[in-house]
Design a binder for these strands. Structure first.
Lengths: 193, 193
DNA sequence: CGCTGGCATTGAACTAGGACAAGAAATGAA
DNA sequence: TTCATTTCTTGTCCTAGTTCAATGCCAGCG
């Protein structure tokens, strides 16, 4: 059960058995049914969750009530509103919702602090996780600005081959920053080639 | 000379005098003339720079040769391709260029390691810096997708009031993800109100 | 089984913003 | 001061993507 997350956290920093034991002992397991909103706008995000099983989306709602999906998280990904919460004491501007029945390992701000004090090397591992999120988000920004809808969709398929089977088309459209109708047109155009 | 950067690094983590002394002793001062490219595509980013004075831009070049500006950095901001370099051993996909004559304090990967080993609390401060970058980039992604050119420009003026005087319009257009010509039209429309 | 409510598709009309071109204005080097 | 280069503006035409509406689809539920 712990092997997935232990492998993930060890990706850029090597930990010995003692450290991983501390890590595992602080994890909180949680199962969440599908279509559950785990973080509301204006709430403080009180968790950092690792997806053992399932699929989650994180999204903003714009001034006209339209959703913009910032991130999908599936197995072996982390999801949280890490960017503001807990460090700025600013309430979250995003929603986090399960799209499927999910199983998580979670850290609360408190258990994360406990982890860092008991095994400081994890501070580095978490910093690198954030850096990777930053890299992904920067790439996404670049793609959003510089590519056509068709290019963005093809790249999405390449990058997340399984996701297009698991989530509704209109969520993918929202992630790509295009309308659901236009994505449908793009798809029929691609299919005809 | 060190007060600016010491204030900046102490924003979310409190350091004592000893720690700040270690920090200051590891900084490398560097002056760079305007229009200098500090990081080329496919190079490894070997610095993390704090802007004491001046203005810098970080940008991608897309498949058609168009620049997309990811970030401006002015006084008291950090600039680097922190997202990949040094941790993935992947070469940078971005350019970093000075727009004005600049003065920096820099860390190399080595001096940063030395800092973390001598004063581990800095690891946390740097993690929080990355989280703030992530928050800013996420907001930018959301704005890029969900707002009109006019809204984006007005928000830019509000958020970076001095920058619109310091950098060329077409750089701002590139940052906002619109053409320079269209930004000009937006500006005249706004001026007429 | 049939019904209901969310999904996806398709089409027609519309628009925000892009591409191109040409001129005006500002900057800067000599 | 002049010439050159870059930046900014303005106009015209064009297109990628939106909006709105109608239709069909299929999954879950009584």
């Amino acid at each position: 059960m712990y092997s997935q997350i232990n492998k993930n956290i060890s990706r850029y920093v090597t930990f010995d058995a003692d450290e991983l034991e501390i890590f595992d002992s602080l994890l909180q397991y949680k199962a969440v049914p599908k279509k559950t909103i785990m973080l509301q706008i204006d709430e403080m995000c009180s968790f950092e969750a690792f997806v053992i099983k399932g699929c989650v989306r994180k999204y903003y709602i714009d001034a006209n009530g339209f959703e913009v999906i910032l991130q999908f998280a599936i197995e072996n990904a982390w999801i949280s509103d890490i960017s503001f919460s807990n460090y700025e004491d600013k309430p979250s501007r995003v929603y986090i919702e399960t799209l499927e029945d999910c199983k998580f390992f979670m850290f609360s701000p408190e258990t994360k602090e406990e982890l860092f004090s008991k095994a400081p090397k994890f501070e580095r591992a978490f910093r690198i996780l954030v850096q990777r999120s930053l890299a992904v988000t920067q790439d996404r920004l670049f793609n959003t600005i510089s590519k056509t809808a068709t290019e963005k969709y093809l790249e999405f398929l390449e990058h997340y081959p399984t996701l297009s089977q698991r989530v509704a088309q209109h969520y993918i459209a929202s992630y790509l920053g295009i309308s659901a109708e236009f994505l449908s047109k793009v798809r029929t155009k691609i299919a005809k080639l």
